[in-house]
């Protein structure tokens, strides 16, 4: 119930920001579309901790801040490698996934893909296969530089 209320608030705010017209006719259309979306999400049973994770708050700002810094530096690194200033040394590594919930595994794998220079390929038996463009990038990941960043205590469906 709490999730449904928060989702409808979120959708209404999104609709108001996207529309920019505030007369009676359009607002009532907005209300109708929000209600329809809520109804459909209910029918699809996607209103849960995973689909609408409102329990993830403060700790995420720090995570995103550090991740943006990493994305910035690795962008420059990959650009230099493409231009031929640094060597291109593709690597394929296996990382152990010791996060306890599915949601934190998804965040971990997506954070790796989002950083240029490393991309997650495949998950098998609790291991994540990652392709990186450089030896240094592979070593950083193997040292757990990215795993350390993922906020602790994310709940979500457990395996």
């Amino acid at each position: 119930m709490k999730l449904t209320a928060s989702l409808s608030l979120f959708l209404s705010a999104l609709w108001l920001l996207l529309s920019g017209h505030y007369d009676i006719l359009l607002i009532s259309m907005g209300v109708a579309s929000v209600l329809f979306t809520i109804y459909m999400s209910h029918r699809m049973k996607i209103i849960d901790d995973e689909g609408h994770p409102i329990h993830l708050k403060g700790q995420f700002f720090k995570f995103w801040f550090i991740l943006s810094g990493k994305i910035f530096t690795s962008n420059i690194d990959v650009a230099l490698r493409i231009l031929g200033v640094k060597p291109i040394q593709p690597q394929l590594i296996k990382l152990k996934l010791d996060q306890d919930s599915d949601l934190s595994k998804v965040i971990y794998a997506n954070a790796i893909t989002l950083t240029p220079g490393s991309a997650s390929l495949h998950i098998e038996d609790g291991y994540l296969f990652v392709h990186t463009i450089s030896r240094e990038g592979a070593e950083e990941l193997l040292n757990g530089d990215m795993a350390k960043l993922i906020p602790k205590g994310i709940t979500g469906e457990n395996q």
Binding site: L114, H131, I133
Partner: peptide, 14 residues
């Protein structure tokens, strides 16, 4: 193919 994914990573993010 896999190395080219990293090039796409640049256009996707920064």
């Amino acid at each position: 193919f896999y190395s080219r994914l990293h090039a796409v990573g640049i256009t996707d993010t920064l």
